[in-house]
Design a protein around this nucleic acid. Structure first.
Lengths: 230, 230
DNA sequence: GCAATAACCAAAACGAGATTGGTCCCGGAG
DNA sequence: CTCCGGGACCAATCTCGTTTTGGTTATTGC
């Protein structure tokens, strides 16, 4: 079984390798469609596909329907499509990710925040306290967290957190907060936000990270814990 | 100057507000195109656009050519386009971001890594030691860091790190490593990788985070520090 | 003058048709 | 009977021309 048949397969693989080497096809370039390539190499399309499968398993090429066959390793999928990401994650993962990143962001913000940014944080808190609806409150809450992100003075980090925020908003937790129309004056976030911004203003990095961590843990409890409990 | 003319403008704004309230248009929904809406409200398109400009400055709506006019605040731009991000960041920001996130990722990996994942980490290290070219070394180095990310058991976090990695590869491109063809056997990363994986295998979260931090600091020095020095 | 109308522009969306990798089925050669 | 080649088909993707839409400028009418 392995004599002639496998020999033919190896022959096709070798011819394919020679073709790729011969043509000045570099990494990431597309090679001809299967129908065309099979004619050029004088093999059947099925035989060519077997040879391509070998090279793909070796990591030499990668293929995708509608796109073609490419030289090199398959490009990784980024969070370019928020909707695609939402289908693979859940609110718990979002909170774990926030807990992992945002305390360190607060620490870095305490180091680098400008006076203007600290002033904007305080303005966000004032406006969130005065919010008449949950929607307005969330708007100012988002802006507060984004201002803290901007205070790291790192554009890449801000974009990553924006992406995380987009996933957070898109992920299906469109429930909760159906009972009340607006935040209570003693809503837990108000005091916690005060502590975070105060720590940043005082340049106390450790306390900024710690208070942010406690804040997010409270949010996590309210969002996930109470759902199980109630 | 402000009597009749401004009065008319306010009148149009009021009529527009009434239209939005009246129609059951919710947040993020698109309202009719300007040409159509101006006919419906019985005002000129120019007058309507002035009224729309008022609502836009208030943050009630946002507009974009080719898309339309939408209710709510303008959606933020995520890291959907790697190339666009590359133009706004630099290698220093990439390293700062890695230093902020990846030690915590290692800490979380030490908590959640499966035996199979730890085995894959060791396989990556073995293969990176045996690499014949820098390209091969980087391939296994990337895969090692990605396996550590996967060990957090958090798909969202993995995607965010993939995005970060894509930016890193795009920004830190042609330079460095022009002098040697392959990694030295005593390359600093080898021993550092060993320490990180050992800490993860021993479930020592604190040491995993600390060794990862030291590893990235070494990479940062090699990448940025020596460039300034030499 | 000046505001309304129309005309034009570039960005985005839309849609029909062509491409392309992946799969299945049938017929013929060995 | 097995197995390979050919063809047809499928779904994802790309391509390209057309339409829609906000933004801008010129023209017209009072």
């Amino acid at each position: 079984m392995d004599g002639a048949a496998e020999g033919e397969g190896i022959e096709t693989v070798a011819r394919l390798r020679a073709y790729i080497e011969g043509s000045q096809l570099t990494v990431d370039s597309r090679l001809p469609p299967e129908r065309e390539l099979s004619r050029a190499l004088g093999v059947s399309r099925a035989g060519l596909r077997q040879a391509l499968a070998v090279l793909e398993s070796e990591g030499q090429i990668w293929r995708h329907v509608g796109k073609g066959t490419f030289i090199g390793t398959r490009p990784i999928a980024t969070v370019s499509d928020i909707d695609a990401m939402v289908r693979r994650t859940n609110p718990a993962e979002v909170m774990r990710t926030r807990l992992l990143i945002e305390p360190e962001v607060a620490r870095m913000a305490a180091l680098n925040a400008t006076p203007a940014q600290i002033a904007e944080m305080r303005a966000c808190m004032t406006r969130s306290r005065a919010a008449a609806t949950w929607r307005q409150y969330e708007s100012w809450d988002n802006r507060l967290h984004r201002t803290i992100a901007e205070a790291t003075q790192n554009a890449l980090l801000v974009s990553l957190l924006d992406t995380l925020g987009a996933v957070r908003r898109a992920v299906a937790w469109g429930r909760l907060r159906v009972n009340k129309v607006k935040p209570e004056p003693d809503h837990h976030s108000f005091a916690e936000h005060e502590e975070i911004v105060a720590a940043i203003a005082e340049r106390d990095r450790e306390r900024a990270a710690e208070t942010m961590r406690r804040h997010l843990e409270t949010v996590e409890r309210k969002l996930l814990g109470e759902r199980r409990g109630a």
